[in-house]
Design a protein around this nucleic acid. Sequence first.
DNA 1: TTGTAAGCGTTATCAC
DNA 2: GTGATAACGCTTACAA
Lengths: 352, 352
Amino acid sequence: MPQQPNKRVTINDIANMAGVSKATVSRYLNGKYNLMSAETRQRIETVIAFSHYRPSATARSLKTQRSNLVGVVIADIASPFSAALVKGADSVFGGEGYIPVFVDTDDSPDREEASIRSLLAHQVDGLLVNTAAMHNPYLIDLANSGFPVVLCDREIRDFNFDIVTADYKKPIHDLFDHLTGQGYGHIGICTQEYRRNSVRTDRVDAFLDASRRLGVKRPEENVLVVKINDAKSVSGAIRRFIDRTPKGTVPAIIGVNTVTLMSSYYALWKMGLSIPGEVGLCGPDDWDWSRHAAWDWPEVIGGGITTFKTKPTQLGAQAAWMLIRRINNPNASKQRVLIPAELTTRASTMLS
Amino acid sequence: MPQQPNKRVTINDIANMAGVSKATVSRYLNGKYNLMSAETRQRIETVIAFSHYRPSATARSLKTQRSNLVGVVIADIASPFSAALVKGADSVFGGEGYIPVFVDTDDSPDREEASIRSLLAHQVDGLLVNTAAMHNPYLIDLANSGFPVVLCDREIRDFNFDIVTADYKKPIHDLFDHLTGQGYGHIGICTQEYRRNSVRTDRVDAFLDASRRLGVKRPEENVLVVKINDAKSVSGAIRRFIDRTPKGTVPAIIGVNTVTLMSSYYALWKMGLSIPGEVGLCGPDDWDWSRHAAWDWPEVIGGGITTFKTKPTQLGAQAAWMLIRRINNPNASKQRVLIPAELTTRASTMLS
DNA sequence: TTGTAAGCGTTATCAC
DNA sequence: GTGATAACGCTTACAA
């Protein structure tokens, strides 16, 4: 088979074949049937069906300055949380005729900015961003210029963005109340480096507040900052925390997110400490797997782990709606939506 | 602040400001510095730096018929397997100057075809597809026409595609050998509906082969087809399988993928059956979390589950390279790459 | 070394 | 109802 030049069939070809002008074909393509006779419409329809014609979205974008592309910028697309978020966003964009372009920034502010520039060059109509940087002049400029931007999950403090996120402080207070109610007297939070990340920062702040409310003097000491891909770092921090437990009380650990929660579980298991008797354990369930199967990981692991459920799928879907609204109405006032989180207590914190 | 029309700055504006023609600016943009004087280059550089100019990728694509966009079509982007695959692909595309456009097809062949049409309209330079359909005339036509398409993970049998996948049969045989070596005498495989899915089909076929090799008469009876989001369906099938265990032997269950493996674990746990003594349990680890943390779920759950590791991140990365190669060289001969899987035995199958 | 002008595949403004 | 024709923002012969 010779190498076919395989020339693309264009609106001109269709016009010629149908014996009309390309203006008429264009009208047909845009559904303006009232601007043509029934037979013209019919003729074009036939020719198109016959010819495998596919209008060039590129040419259309160039002319109309709209692309029906939306950029979805994700800090770490491989995390189950983000994957669910992406799925939620994808489903609403798809239904509304937008095609989402996902990019992963590897949690790097520089890559985030570069990705966004590239998306803008491709004429995306708007941006849904799970930002890598809590402080973000570039994104603020962009939103300020009137370009549709909505934030999802992670916040940028110093500007009033459209955003959908969750109340990340309340569940930590809830957890605290539950733990003290069960009789845990020495409570720590296990976290990765958190200062650049609004979600972790919120949770740690809530932890500090709750600790002080309880009368803890130096709650900072109970913030265990670990390197998540270094098992020794996790078990070392936990070991030191547990060693500091006052006589007569039982320690408990809150994971700042699902990954640290699991890492803590793993470390405790390796140390041979029993949950909930020797240590309590709880934290967020960021993974939203209920759709996938009839079980949920916090039920399966270690006989049940107390968690509160964040809702990434819903977060993504809501944010997508918000972006569409913003694209259609650039002047609407900014919105802030909070998805509530549900606490489910399980065996891992049941001291009594 | 009045509603700024916010006119886009174009190559013409730059040309005017720099006092050169737009051809020269274009040359500058494409790095053809040898075609202009040092001072011209300098002048353009300054003007651009000053003006926030961003060339329109759309216009460029229209002219050049290349977009630097690649379509990445994924059956279920929310599964940890796909998420890792996407991450792997993303990292190589990003590094090579391509911007990947991910779409989720919800495992529907119709949505897959629609998504691909839409991607083609946007002039993507190539397609990386994790297909929803084992038989797929549309994709075959497309690849046949010379358009760059590479498959990832899932196969389409009746055509010679570029593909990167894993050898999905061998690990099942390995598992079988391991189980019988440990003394398990009644082996079943728990799977979702599998006939449209090449990976599940391969695994079930390998299971049937291995069973026959062992002298099992009706191995089909040991293929437990379950509905994954219905706990009763899973536990019912497992219960019936276990009830059929011949006297004096111990049953074992292989999960066809990680989700069914986990579901089986959950069902066994609910039934109060002890692993590995009363039932053996094993299957694939499709999730590739080693990058995320220092632990891996098969170690954490139930004291350790025997798995073989598929490598989604690597799969995605390899496939991306293969697609880039295909885009650059449409006439190269087709390639087929198999990523090997590693078996790790753990407590869940240690009868002896 | 630089400029002119045609053209990529559409849409939109006029006419007729 | 329909058709010319001028954009949209670039790239690229071909000239100069």
